[in-house]
Simulated scan of single mutants.
Amino acid sequence: MSAVKRIVTIGSGGTISAVADARRRAGGGLGAADIVQAAGEPLPGIELSAVDVRRIPGRAMAPADMQAIASTIAAEVAAGCDGVVVTHGTDTVEETAYALALMLDVPVPIVLSAAMRLPGDVGHDGGANVRAALVAARDERVAALGPVLAIQDELHLARWVTKAHTSRVAAFASPETGPVGVFAEDRLQLSATHGPDDHLGLPAGDLGATRVELIWVAAGMDGLLLDAAAERADGIVVAGSGGGHVPPPVAEAIERAIARGVPVVIASRCAAGPTLERTYGGPGGELHLRELGAHFAGRIPALKARLRLQVALALGRGAQEVFPA
């Protein structure tokens, strides 16, 4: 690699790019080149370029958009860049980060960043977060972590990070592991050397054409939602209670879905911890669901299990292959 690191900033929209009017409606939005300007004095040893893939709020981000970001990153890496920063909306940045981990295996850092406050707000956090992302993107060690999120002076792995609060600036956490790095004085202090190997591949076709539904379990649910999903879905992820449990009527609907040939993956709705394997039997327990042919997500959170199944199916790979637990 050259002494000067070539960092590409990819814009996708979100609060970090928003320009709000007096009625708090998002305006046209800032591009990636504009956002970088808020990061302060240029960091030594890097050469910046910018490209915009999307200019949409985080709530509008879909798997097809994530695929477009992944394809852009792959092209920039092939063209010789040394690191990538992706600016994004906070609502879905944890999902895009994990989608990139699934679709990309590249030898350079991929760092996402975002902001909780609009650029015109007092205490806007976007500039500091992007600066941290640039610090991480020039650090060769970060490539081994896979895609990461740089925010609130912390670095988080794609698999574990989640938006844990709706509005405060310190909105992100990794309940399973905590952050793997912290920033101070334009330097990154890492506490990990490698991230999880989540890579599956970049689908050639439209990822959005593969439909995977996520159904959250609540006390007293019946099988209505799951039966409806099985009519059209290519796969279903169920966020079960505790270690991966569902009410007995939902278990009956899971059995019907599997009989139709729809793969069903059981995750947990809990913030941390694995799905269980051999503790609870009876209707809706994990032993029963395994007997029915359901697959289990292990430690992968429900939101990310959905993306993992979606990418796998789009690649022609089965649930058993990517959820072997």
Rank of each mutant, 00 (worst) to 15 (best):
P274N: 04
S2R: 10
A143I: 09
G243D: 01
G273Y: 04
L112N: 14
A114G: 11
V148F: 00
E76S: 07
D34Q: 13
K304G: 10
A302N: 08
E252N: 12
G285L: 04
G201L: 06
V182I: 09
T166K: 00
V84H: 03
V262S: 08
G83L: 09
V322F: 08
A22Q: 14
I69G: 02
V106F: 13
G31D: 02
I56E: 00
H194F: 11
A319Y: 07
A158G: 11
A192P: 00
L134K: 04
G13F: 03
R317F: 02
H165C: 02
A251R: 09
E213C: 10
V180M: 08
G11P: 06
D34P: 01
A204G: 15
G195P: 13
L112S: 12
G201H: 04
I16M: 07
G235P: 14
I7W: 00
A272E: 05
V262R: 07
V311S: 12
A101Y: 00
R256I: 06
R141S: 04
S17D: 10
I35L: 09
S2N: 14
M66Y: 12
G127I: 03
V161A: 04
V169L: 14
P274M: 04
I7K: 00
L303A: 11
V130D: 01
I254F: 06
N129Y: 11
R54E: 11
V212D: 14
A239I: 02
A302P: 09
I56N: 02
I151E: 03
T166S: 15
A312P: 07
G178V: 07
G205P: 04
A184I: 09
K163T: 08
V182G: 09
Q189L: 12
M1F: 01
V51F: 07
A164T: 14
R131L: 01
G208H: 05
T9F: 02
V264K: 04
V265D: 08
I300R: 15
I258V: 15
E95M: 06
L149K: 07
G282P: 13
V93G: 03
G31T: 02
G123V: 06
A97H: 11
P109S: 01
V84S: 04
L287V: 14
R187M: 13
L303F: 10
R299V: 13
A3L: 12
A33C: 00
A128G: 14
H288D: 12
A79Y: 01
P196G: 05
R138Y: 10
E95S: 02
R55T: 15
P248S: 10
V237L: 08
I300K: 08
F296V: 10
T96C: 08
M116F: 09
I258A: 03
P147G: 08
A132P: 00
V238S: 11
A171F: 13
